[in-house]
Simulated assay, not measured.
Amino acid sequence: MTVKAIGPYEFPAKDRQEIFGDDQLVCVHWDDNMFYYAGATFRVPRSMKWSDFKSQMIDPWAAADPDYRPDAATDWRRDDEPIDPKPDDTITDLGIVHKGLIRFRVK
């Protein structure tokens, strides 16, 4: 649906990267899950290690679904590109940008 503005929109976005300093927003989506039809967004330091991100952000969020098993999460992707995150990789090392999307499945 097309939106017609009544005037120019000249306001900077309130969620742009520079507002977050050393942090950034990371979106997470559990593909093929009926319980979570939409993803979640987390504010995290860019230097956060993958193991901490998964255990402190993804696991508690996904655990609301009784089918979630942390060790069964697989097929990790950054947007549509497959990634193989190692525990000591940082969010930056993995190429995850501000408002980037991490996707996964559980087998």
Rank of each mutant, 00 (worst) to 15 (best):
M1F: 10
T2Q: 14
I6C: 06
G7F: 11
Y9V: 15
E10W: 04
E10F: 08
P12Y: 08
A13R: 13
K14M: 08
K14S: 14
Q17K: 15
I19F: 13
F20D: 03
G21Y: 02
G21T: 10
D22M: 09
Q24D: 05
Q24K: 11
L25I: 14
L25P: 01
V26N: 05
C27L: 13
V28I: 09
N33T: 01
F35C: 00
F35N: 10
F35R: 07
A38G: 01
G39I: 01
A40H: 07
T41Q: 12
F42L: 07
F42R: 04
F42D: 01
R43S: 12
R43M: 09
R46N: 13
R46K: 15
M48G: 00
W50F: 15
W50K: 05
W50Q: 05
S51I: 13
F53S: 09
K54W: 02
K54I: 00
K54F: 15
S55I: 02
S55M: 14
Q56M: 11
M57H: 14
M57D: 03
M57S: 12
I58G: 07
I58W: 03
D59N: 09
P60H: 04
P60T: 03
W61N: 02
W61A: 05
A63R: 06
A64T: 09
D65H: 05
P66I: 04
Y68R: 05
Y68T: 05
R69K: 15
R69W: 04
R69I: 14
P70G: 08
P70Q: 11
D71I: 08
A72S: 13
A73W: 00
T74N: 11
R77E: 08
R78W: 07
D79E: 15
D79H: 10
D80F: 12
D80K: 13
D80S: 13
P82Y: 05
I83G: 02
P85S: 11
P87R: 06
P87G: 10
P87N: 05
D88T: 15
D88F: 11
D89V: 06
D89G: 04
T90R: 01
T90L: 10
I91P: 04
T92N: 08
D93H: 14
V97W: 12
V97D: 11
H98G: 06
H98V: 09
K99Q: 13
G100H: 10
L101P: 02
L101N: 08
I102Y: 06
R103L: 12
V106C: 15
V106F: 02
K107V: 06
K107Q: 05
